[in-house]
Computed example of a mutant assay.
Amino acid sequence: MAADRSRRFMWAAVAGAIVMTVFAAVTVLRASSDSAPPVPPPAAAPAPAVATSAAVDAAAPSATPSASPSPSRSPVPQSQNPAELITGMRTTIRESVRAGQLSPDAGRELGRRLDDAAERLAKGKPGKTRQKLREFTRKLLDLRKEDKISDAVFQSLAAELAAVVRTLPA
């Protein structure tokens, strides 16, 4: 009985962390699509969600086989160069596919969308880059809904995505 409660609590906390991460990513993307610079508080929201999930995972181990440890990348990138951050996201995707936390097909789909965004960024088109990152976000959300990506990888990519959007030129 107590195990059922702790498991329910764990999943409720994970679901809450996912909702907060998605909300923060969508808020950041919408704020960045306006001409005004993004508001800092929503961009900082993914970091606590990652910490919350990690605390839940540490408190109650999951019986789900896809809940293997996340890639060893930092959840909040330190670079201020959007091209470098996109490269870091590609690395996260590659490591996640290798670790079995993301299917190869899903990895290719996400990678293709990142490549499109990086191409627009290299051409000096931040508006088009944001549009491609919104497509990436939609695909990421679809993968999460379909349970084709682990929570840890989802949260890591959402945090990295927020960092990319924050560093894009206006």
Rank of each mutant, 00 (worst) to 15 (best):
A3H: 07
R5N: 01
R5K: 06
S6L: 13
R8V: 07
W11F: 13
A13D: 10
V14E: 11
A15C: 08
A17L: 13
A17D: 09
I18C: 13
V19P: 00
M20N: 14
M20R: 15
A25H: 03
A25T: 14
T27A: 15
V28L: 11
V28W: 03
L29D: 03
A31H: 10
S32Y: 02
S32W: 02
P37K: 12
P38H: 08
P40T: 12
P41E: 11
P46Y: 08
P46N: 11
P48R: 12
P48F: 10
A49M: 14
V50H: 13
D57H: 12
A60D: 07
A60I: 14
P61Q: 14
P61L: 10
P61K: 13
S62D: 14
A63V: 15
V76C: 04
N81Y: 05
A83S: 04
A83K: 01
I86K: 00
T87D: 05
E95M: 10
S96I: 08
V97P: 09
R98V: 08
G100E: 11
S103W: 08
P104T: 12
R108Y: 04
L110D: 09
R113C: 01
D116S: 07
A118I: 01
E119L: 05
L121D: 02
L121G: 00
A122G: 03
K123E: 07
K123W: 03
G124L: 09
K125G: 02
P126F: 04
K128L: 04
K128E: 03
R130Y: 04
Q131I: 03
L133Y: 00
E135F: 05
T137Q: 06
T137N: 01
L140P: 07
L140K: 11
L140C: 09
L141N: 14
R144T: 11
R144Y: 07
E146Q: 15
D147R: 15
I149S: 09
V153T: 14
V153K: 03
F154L: 15
L157E: 08
A159V: 04
E160F: 00
E160Q: 13
E160K: 12
L161F: 01
L168K: 02
L168T: 02
